[in-house]
Design a protein around this nucleic acid. Structure first.
Lengths: 181, 181, 181, 181
DNA sequence: TATGAATGAGTTTTCATTCAT
DNA sequence: CATGAATGAAAACTCATTCAT
């Protein structure tokens, strides 16, 4: 594993375990087994390190969710598949998931990164839009619907990170019942 | 207005606008128009200030939500009334609402305060339980249902603080559709 | 007991038990059961309080030592009597003794007080001077002899505050053997 | 000279000249011509700085005193040699001597350091013990005798730091006369 | 005279960042 | 590229002193 990845991995672990504020650059360097100066060869500042971590993990999350995305099946099937993958990712990557939650509204995340991240959600939009056109999803503002679903599921998974397969399905169907017309 | 309230008000404003980490005690004192030492006459530490702010505002929120709570009407009516009041409170008190979200999982909030806050939600539980007994709410774990609803509505309101009356109703009904059987 | 004495007593106790630095004026006021402001009616500052405490206790010590001082007996008898009373005072007043030691070279004690205190030792000087004239005490600088004796005895008593009567006599005779010719 | 020594030297000077309490870390850094942070690379805290200063200087003192210690000569010769070296050291190192006195009973000195320091005095003990066995030193508690001698000589030297060679001998003989049987 | 809330200068300590090696 | 000693601005917090009541 290369140095850059070591640093990112160390920072992720320490930020989640102890909070970003309580994690000094010195400590990250120690955990990453490199010098402090080395970190500044890869990241301009602590803030950049946080932003890179946020952007890369958010991108990984959506890449995973959408890599098997199949627009040919029914809207409900697409909806269920996407959100189940979202939950699976959260369960398999607890550190990353916790990190993304902790920093999702942090003032440390730059506007630039926030905008890049917002674009990732676009394919998800299209599922809702298609459902609305087909009349099987309520005719409300799409953004509102997505936010509603995301808030509900994220909140549920973070309170219950050891969710069972049965509960995963229940959870996604709960969300579906909310938005279906 | 007394000094203690000035300090709480100043801290709330600055914590939300700039983040807690970026807000020094010196700055809060300046905003509250008092000396730094004065703050330490009212609050032992920055951490206590945060905890008091959290407990008092969470308590105000639930007091407001539940002050007109009427257990004699139907479960759906109770559900709608409670969450509408929740949304109203969020709209009328954006700073307080944002603060409560920001610190809801913060390590700065003490176990003691977390426990006190958890008890406030009890009446809300009973509405869901009653609905489950009557067979009109899905027979899933009550805590999960509450978390689902709360996550969905909180998320929606915080992304759209200027929500219209029509949308408020739509939002609550979206949540209702999710959990109704 | 009047307020002034209460304050002095409280300060003495706390200064010795916890150190002056660790003892705040607030704490002294609490121990003396009066308001902080009240202390400033009796003593201009913390420094003055320390100086008054030092001067008064040093004066009490020498008053006690010298109140039965009898210049008609032999020099050796005078020497022994004085230093035995010194030791007795130290044993009976451990807090006061400790305080006087702690502050004997403190930068907090003003020049003015230091000078006043130095004069108290004058009668003791005369005993040594008389002994030198009689040829029974070594013909060295009197101040040096007094400092030698005082250093030796003070040091001994402070390391062994529960000294027995036998040891008290041994100690004084040790000092006598040093200076006798 | 290296940075660590610069810091120790600066701290020693300022602690003695103005008192520890009146000497801020900022001031020590300025005197040592380094940044404040640098001090914390070498010493964990102000307290540690004090303790290191105390232990190192006490050790230097005893190393100097005992480096020429010769147990083959007479007890009196050993006694005189040791205390003369003690006085020499005090005269040559007035700052260090004053510092050791100021902190000898300070609550800032840790138990750990106190214990380490107490062991240094052991060879001195043996001189007294040997004298007692030979019947040329009074048969009193050895610790008491050592404390008596130390208190007397330390006190004398600190009041008169410009002591002449003649006076040095007189002083040591004064102490010898006290304890000899 | 007695009080204690209010004050802010000053303290120790931390830590992101730099730069000489 | 890699390193970590050096730095000092800034943080949380303390406490002697003041002054309105």
């Amino acid at each position: 594993m290369n140095k850059r990845d070591n640093i990112l991995k160390a920072a992720l672990k320490l930020f989640v375990e102890q909070g970003e504020q309580a994690t000094s650059m010195k400590w990250i360097a120690k955990e990453a087994k490199c010098g402090i100066g080395t970190m500044y060869n890869y990241f301009e500042s602590k803030e950049e390190l946080i932003n890179v971590l946020y952007l890369e993990n958010k991108t990984k999350l959506f890449t995973y969710i959408l890599e098997t995305h199949d627009t040919s099946v029914s809207v409900k099937q697409q909806f269920v598949a996407i959100w189940l993958k979202f939950i699976d990712h959260a369960i398999s990557n607890p550190l990353e998931t916790r990190f993304l939650q902790l920093f999702s509204h942090s003032p440390k995340i730059s506007k630039q990164v926030t905008e890049e991240v917002n674009e990732l959600i676009y394919p998800l939009f299209e599922v809702y839009e298609k459902g609305k056109k087909e009349g099987i999803i309520k005719n409300l503002d799409t953004l509102h619907l997505v936010i509603f679903t995301n808030g509900a599921i994220t909140s549920s998974v973070s309170y219950n990170p050891n969710i069972s397969n049965q509960n995963k399905n229940d959870l996604v169907l709960l969300a579906w019942d909310a938005i279906k017309s």
